[in-house]
Amino acid sequence: MNIFRLTGDLSHLAAIIILLLKIWKTRSCAGISGKSQLLFALVFTTRYLDLFTSFISLYNTSMKLIYVACSYATVYLIYMKFKATYDGNHDTFRVEFLVVPVGGLSFLVNHDFSPLEILWTFSIYLESVAILPQLFMISKTGEAETITTHYLFFLGLYRALYLINWIWRYYFEGFFDLIAVVAGVVQTILYCDFFYLYVTKVLKGKKLSLPA
């Protein structure tokens, strides 16, 4: 465990909590893509099946359980409790265009052709693109609430910190996972445009709105 990995995990946790609190406090999930949140719930479910097969550490187990629980709670708030506030008309990204190719790729390119490993690979690939419905929704409406941009910032920062963690681990531990690294690079690149807007607009106190 190095500092980049730890801050990456905490950044991920911050993102998840920010989103939950935003929905809970405002009693509304306006501007949030339920589809992205469904995909993240699927990502955590397929990745953390090793909770049943192996124990790494108390930290590892607790974080996995927290991520899974929070992602299901978020989905519940969007599709059940605050369904009336869900902006389904703008959440029109076709998720099958992500899930089907990602599913096929995880069968073709993986470390080991076993059920758990294929599901882990699927979750890694899917996570890298799971934010697309949310970004698509923002590009459609042309704006995002500031709290939503904080959520996206921490979510993007998390994988960027993991990239540094992987460089660190490569040099100091000889650890290298090509699948995670390539997917992590793709994932981080998808946030670049958003990072630019976040720094140039949101951090200067302006609302994130896109030119018409």
Binding site: D50, S54, I56, Y67, H111, D112, W120, F175, D177, A180
Partner: peptide, 10 residues
Amino acid sequence: GQSVEGKDEL
């Protein structure tokens, strides 16, 4: 690649 048992990252 690493085995399923070795997945210490989140």
